[in-house]
Write a protein that binds this DNA or RNA. Structure first.
Lengths: 211, 211
DNA sequence: TCGGCGATTGACTGATCAGTCAATCCAACC
DNA sequence: GGTTGGATTGACTGATCAGTCAATCGCCGA
């Protein structure tokens, strides 16, 4: 049974992770000391090393926890029947944007310190990041097979462009290059899908434009 | 007159910058020591500080030198008459991709250490980076006014998506998630434009599809 | 009540590096 | 051939921090 002790320990570990999110978001991974995390969590310096082997492992944990959710979400959407590829991409965009809405600090840390930092941290997680591209590519590929999407562009490439566009938008929010707000979030989801699926060219017809 | 002395000094400064590109590309800005740069350039440690105030200034210089060229290129394309918006975006994509082809190490440093590192370095250069978005947005806006591009998506947003897609592709090359090669580079230019302008939806007509 | 053990503490160590500086070098000019 | 001043050198300093560890605490079962 999870004794009160074990529960308290789990809570402490979580408290340290949560504190790390705030500190990493505020000062950046390299710009903070382990003691900053400990202070923020209200625990002694050494306790961080009781629960984690290194400063790196704290960030790894935060990233993996969240990224697995994203991969699962993409996979679930990919398998859904009776949903157009466009709607599937909308669902993926939704998941990512809502993740940001729900916990902007965590998403900031993941994007800034891992996803966009493939040089340092991302390198370790390149394979995991790539899985997300592949999941999106799988959605596109299916649509190309059934004729919903053009084959003018490879699925792999389309996935990269789609993910790149979303990440750029999140980055815009993170660094205040774009206005925030619930309306903005919903608009962003639609815009990403509209740009990548509908394209910018003024077409005579634009089926399911969602606008 | 530029004496031989002055010329030699300028050459040394350049040699340090070039060495820095190689070292930053190989080890990352934070992963190298100033002595690594000096060693790579074949000069004494202190000389780096004779030509630059700090390690940061070396990176700043590399970034600004190159980014100004990009801004100028975008601006020039923006002003060109008798070029469709689609072709203008193609020119911009070309410039960026060709920059990578011409000097992948420098582009790697700029993207990995500045553009994608808005947390540390990018922050200083956020305004400059934003200028690039604005230049691209200006191209889109023009096309929206003359009816070539849809207004379903704001110009600012389209610019973000376009730039995000390109940067993601370069990142793919940088971290070996995408195959390299001249053919790949040309394809990438076309694909980015096709995705953002034409869209993925299988349309009955696709003017100027370039494929 | 007591002993064991995981939880918790925080001072300390060892290593790393950016930036400084005093000394030396040497090309250019008188 | 002497003088000047920028170019060049590299040892050194001061500060920073990740990670260690020996000591202490306090819950829980016997």
């Amino acid at each position: 049974m999870a004794t009160a002790r074990a529960q308290a320990a789990a809570d402490k570990r979580r408290a340290i992770l949560d504190a790390a999110v705030r500190v990493f978001a505020r000062q950046g991974f390299h710009g903070c000391r382990v003691s900053d995390i400990a202070d923020e969590a209200g625990v002694a310096y050494g306790l961080v090393y009781h629960y984690f082997d290194s400063k790196d492992e704290v960030l790894d944990t935060l990233f993996l926890e969240r990224w697995e959710l994203l991969l699962a979400a993409i996979d679930a959407v990919d398998r859904r029947e009776g949903l157009s590829a466009r709607d599937k991409l909308y669902e993926v965009a939704s998941f990512i944007v809502d993740s940001y809405r729900h916990d902007p600090e965590l998403m900031k840390v993941i994007i800034v310190e891992v996803t966009r930092a493939a040089n340092s941290f991302g390198r370790t997680h390149l394979a995991k990041i790539r899985e997300a591209y592949e999941g999106i590519a799988s959605i596109v590929e299916q649509a190309q097979r059934d004729g919903t999407f053009t084959t003018a562009v490879t699925a792999q490439f389309a996935a990269l462009a789609f993910y790149g566009a979303i990440e750029q938008v999140l980055t815009g929010w993170i660094f205040d290059l774009l206005p925030h707000g619930d309306g903005q979030y919903e608009q962003a989801k639609r815009f990403v899908v509209e740009t990548v699926c509908g394209g910018l060219d003024a077409g005579s017809e634009r089926p399911d434009a969602r606008l």
